[in-house]
Structures are given as structure tokens and as C-alpha cells.
Amino acid sequence: MRQSLNEGQFVLIQLLKDMGKEVERILQGCMQTLISLDRIQADYWIAEDQKINDFERQVDDECVRLIATQQPVAKDLRKIISAMKISTDLERMGDLAIDIAKIVRRIEGPLIKQLIDIPLMAEKALEMMRRGLEAYAIEDMELANGLADQDDQVDQLYKKVVRDLLVIMTERPEVLDQGMYLAFVGRYLERFADHATNIGENVIYIATAGRQDLNK
């Protein structure tokens, strides 16, 4: 029953997974660019943002097609509406990754410290995104709920990054600009993780029709 609708929903899951992989590829590339401070690479990744925008349009088009032709209701409708919202979150996550590449263009001189917690934040945020998308694919509430704890860990790391940078900036006022830029990167990754919690909130909405805040 509802073969066309089921197939359409499968297409959405696949599109979102592929979009997630593209976001992951771009964030990892931007992080590598940050560590190496390679401005040419930064320009390359900034141009790659278009691919994520294209994915978002594909997801939107498929959702509109399914709503118009299949008239989904109840959980089917929630799943399709959520796919549109998740694609918007992924698009924003892609923008935040690109913002890191834009920061690389501005940074002057060598890095003021070895980057440890910022790459760790990126890895944890990406893990959250993968988890959220898997939870969407298999409609797993438990997986989605686990995003709240992971988001807390990213928030803690962000606070630590800011604290460490403040110490350096206090001791060496000449690196204030770069310190601020690196704090921005921490902020972008913290926001990236927040968008991943939005994916989990959509999974909970699909399963229960209720709202739950995973980002407190």
C-alpha cells in the first residue's frame, strides 16, 4: 500500500543522508583549511557551498511533489514537513562550515595556539549530525534524545575554548584579532551542534506529534 509515498519517503531519507555527507565533507575540509591556514583551499570550500544549496532545493522539490500528489496525513505528513525543516538545518550547517573558511581568509600570521578543542568540537558536532540523520531514517526516538547530552558536551567545549582564548588574549593583546576569530569558529561549531539537535527534535515530532527542546 502507498508504494509511491513510501518510495518518495525513501528518496527523502537518501537525499538527506547524501546532503549530510556533503556537509560533513565541507566541514572537514574547512577545518583542515583552518589548521593549515590555506587561503586557496578556503576559496575552494567556499565555492562548494552551492552543492549544499542544490541539495536543499532537491529536498524541497521532492517534499512539495509528495504533498501535492500523495496528500499525506498524520505521521507521513510530519515526516515530509520534517524533511523540509531538516534540509534547512543542514543548509545552515553548511553555511556555518563555510563561515570557518571565510575566517581563514582573515587570519594573519601563524596560529596563536595548537588547535585541539576546536577540532574536537567539529568532530562531536558532526557525530551529532550523523546521529540525527540516522534517527530520522529509522525514526529512533532514543537516538534523537541522546543528542541533548552530546549538545551539552559541545557547549562545555565551547566555553573552554573561549576561556583559553581569553587567557591568551589577556597575556598577548597583539593576537586579539586572531583570538576573536578563533572564538567565532567555536561559536559557529556550537551553532552547528544546535542545528543537529533540531534534527533530533524533528524526529521526536514525527514519532509523537509533540515538541521537545533538546537544546536547553
Binding site: M1, R2, P72, A74, K75, R78, A209
Partner: peptide, 18 residues
């Protein structure tokens, strides 16, 4: 009923699954 039916049989019917 059309957004969050309480009974699975209702959900299955309105979503066209039986």
C-alpha cells in the same frame, strides 16, 4: 484525527496503509 490519531488502526487507514 488527521495529524495525530490515537489508534494505530486509524493511522493505518487515513495514511492509506489498509
Amino acid at each position: 484525527i488527521f495529524t495525530n490519531p490515537k489508534d494505530k488502526r486509524t493511522e493505518d487507514y487515513i495514511t492509506g496503509r489498509f
